[in-house]
């Protein structure tokens, strides 16, 4: 078993008739994903490559049995699209849209509590399970089925790491890009918990970056609850401190958020920290070998 996506996942694409939505829906179908419906307000009744398009998400749920959604709509409508999917009872919502105002995400995240819907993103490449399917736009050819779970705040850097693994002959159970925004639906700790309880996953690669406290929170969970090894990399070690204004950011983070702080916290928690991004795949391979899991 992988996490979140399986053979029963039936995907509706919100914004399917748009430029991005249509291109990536076709790519996902090539990858084997069951895309059962599209949704674009005003285009209901049309077909897209033989797939029905609806005006409302609820129609895709009732008529086509959709239970997952991929959102590709413009930023101004993304929060609305997430809420519509959740209200329609969609359990897995991946929002790829970039540029959603932070205060909208603050509200959406609170609104999703207790609904049973899981959000991935926004501003993320989505989720891919090789051999099953994908929601989002990770390139198809980089993946290979296997036992390494990947969770990342980045986009292209994630592809890079997946590609390194695949080139070394190491496959992935599931790869999740959680998105780089200040407030995201699924966090590092959520993903780590899912991988910990997934029988297909033997090792997790976590790609973090400077800013925020997500890596520190991940470190706490690794220390307390993870029996599986976690290989990590923190991007932005040489980035100069931002030209920030005011003091509130520094006050709220209390000195956290720097690369050194994150590396130290992760090491202390027992994670393997690779400092050379070109060697992340190698670090994962070595760790699997040491554990006799290759």
């Amino acid at each position: 078993m992988s996490i979140l996506l399986d053979k029963n996942t039936r995907v509706v694409i919100q914004g399917m008739t748009g430029k991005e939505g249509s291109f990536h829906a076709r790519e996902a179908i090539k990858f084997g994903t069951k895309i059962v419906a599209g949704m674009t307000p005003g285009k209901g009744g049309q077909e897209f490559d033989g797939i029905p398009v609806f005006n409302r998400v609820i129609d895709a749920v009732e008529k086509e049995g959709a239970n997952a959604s991929g959102i590709f709509c413009p930023a101004a409508f993304a929060a609305d699209a997430i809420l519509e999917a959740a209200e329609a009872g969609i359990k897995l919502i991946a929002c790829m849209t970039e540029g959603v105002p932070v205060l909208e995400m603050v509200k959406v995240k609170k609104a999703l509590r207790g609904t049973g819907s899981r959000l991935i993103g926004p501003n993320c490449p989505g989720i891919t399970t090789p051999g099953v399917g994908k929601i989002g736009f990770m390139p198809n050819f980089i993946h290979k089925e296997g036992n390494v779970g990947i969770v990342s705040r980045s986009g292209t850097l994630t592809y890079e790491v997946i590609y390194q693994l695949t080139s070394l002959g190491i496959g992935q159970s599931t790869s999740i890009g959680i998105g780089g925004d200040p407030i995201v639906g699924t966090t590092f700790t959520d993903a780590l918990e899912l991988f910990e309880s997934d029988s297909q996953t033997d090792l997790v690669v976590l790609i973090g970056e400077i800013g925020g406290t997500a890596e520190e929170e991940a470190a706490q969970l690794i220390k307390k609850n993870m029996t599986k090894k976690v290989v990590t990399f923190i991007a932005g070690q040489t980035a100069p401190p931002g030209k920030r204004m005011g003091h509130a950011g520094a006050i709220i983070s209390g000195g956290k958020g720097t690369a050194e702080e994150k590396v130290k916290t992760l090491k202390d928690a027992g994670a393997i920290v690779e400092s050379n991004p070109a060697n992340i795949g190698m670090a994962a391979k070595r760790t699997l070998e040491e554990q006799g899991l290759l």
């Binding site: 986009g155 890079e160 070690q237 991004p277 070109a278």
Partner: peptide, 17 residues
């Protein structure tokens, strides 16, 4: 010149390395 913020930061790290 890089595509993606994470990879761009990583490329900077590598240049320094």
């Amino acid at each position: 010149m890089v595509n993606g913020a994470g990879l761009a930061m990583t490329t900077m790290d590598l240049i320094k390395m």
